[in-house]
Nucleic acid binder design. Sequence first.
DNA 1: TATTGTTATACTCTATAACTATA
DNA 2: TATAGTTATAGAGTATAACAATA
Lengths: 161, 161
Amino acid sequence: MADLERQPHSPAPDSPGEPSAELAEAAARLRVLTGALMRRLRAAGEGSGVTLSQASVLSRLDRDGPATTVALARAERVRPQSMGATLAALEETGLVERSPHPSDRRQAIMSLTGEGRRQLADVRRTREGWIARALAERLDERERAVVVEALGLLSRLTEED
Amino acid sequence: MADLERQPHSPAPDSPGEPSAELAEAAARLRVLTGALMRRLRAAGEGSGVTLSQASVLSRLDRDGPATTVALARAERVRPQSMGATLAALEETGLVERSPHPSDRRQAIMSLTGEGRRQLADVRRTREGWIARALAERLDERERAVVVEALGLLSRLTEED
DNA sequence: TATTGTTATACTCTATAACTATA
DNA sequence: TATAGTTATAGAGTATAACAATA
């Protein structure tokens, strides 16, 4: 793997409107990191009974309380159709339940069941557990603070339209 | 969306072997952020002719030079079969080409074509461009430094077995 | 007309299993 | 036996388009 001939990098374009080479490099690293994290998260939850997007919805219902399909889709930044599919799977396995909206009969309020809460505790142990453990064991206090601040900054960047 | 009744959080478990509530919170935020970034990256490259994983491979071939399927799979942390599919698509559209390994006839060396290089420049403008621009325009100098350091720290966490 | 939600369909990404060819 | 790579198949995740019911 290391004995292959090297090719030079493409020359940095750096024309007026372009971002600096350092920022382009940071962007590329963020792209790679995102893919790696995604695969780690998926792998960490294998055989747990809930998929990654299902786990995300359970987590949100616990944090923010019962909500409609469209509200959940907006919160998770997916299409209502995608959220509908995720919720249908959760409902079928009894982790969430729907109740009618008091005044608007188009809407249905989705909420966690007791079993959903139990599964969520499991998700937190297994899927998010490796991240929490890695943060605890492999970073020092200052590094953890850096990561936590970066989470806030990057979330801000993804949340604007 | 805001008029729905609130439910309290689940009580924090915090038993001896468990990570602290703050780290669990950070882990959950990282999970959400990862999903959001993934979707943004995918959406940013729509209609560009190359998919996200293809773009990732083009980028790596440019950075590290020609490589075999297995080497690329290891570098991108996917199975050789998954990498094989990505490379087959890139080869079919003429963005990479294969040449025989000088001594081992099982192996094939994949490298960027001229067209692959052109596409890569495009990918950098479009797909990574929004990140680079967001970093440049919406963060100040210190915040950018925090993000860059966090990228390194988190990459370290994903890279260990 | 606008909004909520569903159904149908398709594509990307990745995985496992089973195989061939070469070392 | 071990390694490089391919083929076949499946599941997760998401999207767009078209629709029905309700507001």
